[in-house]
């Protein structure tokens, strides 16, 4: 009787354990963006100097679109990586930053101290963040020269990762 109960219990709990085992391997925050392979949501935003930048006008070259903030430690880690990449890929790739839930003054102070790697666009109502399905910062979208979202990276970019993705887009 005990063996029967044990067998039934095991059979019933096995699918649950398998399901949980598979589920725990995934971090919901790193879910692939449903935008990959689709046209990047269009936007026109102003940078901190008031220059209006329209994504549609940048077609013809790949775009690196990075959502970042000064309160985000991984963004600070990523900053020099993006600076170096912006120098390496100058004239071949558009580097755009979108300020994610941060104060313009804090961004300006940060950029004065550490330098910039591209225009920082102001997204006051997080409308662009929502259109891109951003969960947090940093998140980077790679848009190919025809305006299609090619890849999304959650978390700080490494130089190797950047070279691999941009190399595929050039």
């Amino acid at each position: 009787m005990n063996k029967k109960v044990l067998l039934t219990g095991s059979l019933l709990s096995l699918p649950v354990l398998v399901f949980l085992g598979i589920s725990f391997r995934f971090d919901p925050r790193t879910i692939d963006s449903p935008l990959i392979g689709k046209t990047a949501p269009g936007f026109a935003l102003e940078d901190l100097d008031g220059n209006r930048i329209d994504l549609a006008a940048l077609r013809g070259k790949p775009v690196l679109l990075n959502f970042w903030a000064t309160w985000c430690q991984p963004c600070i880690v990523e900053h020099p990586v993006l600076q170096a990449a912006a120098r390496r890929y100058a004239d071949r790739v558009h580097f755009l930053g979108v300020i994610y839930q941060d104060e313009n003054d804090a961004i300006l102070r940060f950029l004065r101290q550490r330098g910039s790697w591209g225009p920082s666009l102001v997204d006051p109502d997080v409308k662009v963040g929502i259109a891109y399905g951003v969960y947090g910062a940093p998140e980077t979208f790679f848009i190919d020269s025809s305006g299609i979202v090619a890849e999304k990276v959650t978390g700080p970019l490494s130089p190797g990762q950047l070279d691999r993705i941009l190399g595929g887009l050039l």
Partner: peptide, 18 residues
Amino acid sequence: SGQTPSGAPQAIVSPESV
């Protein structure tokens, strides 16, 4: 410093395109 010339810049995202 810290402000855009036109005040709060307006994001333009087109939900219609989606």
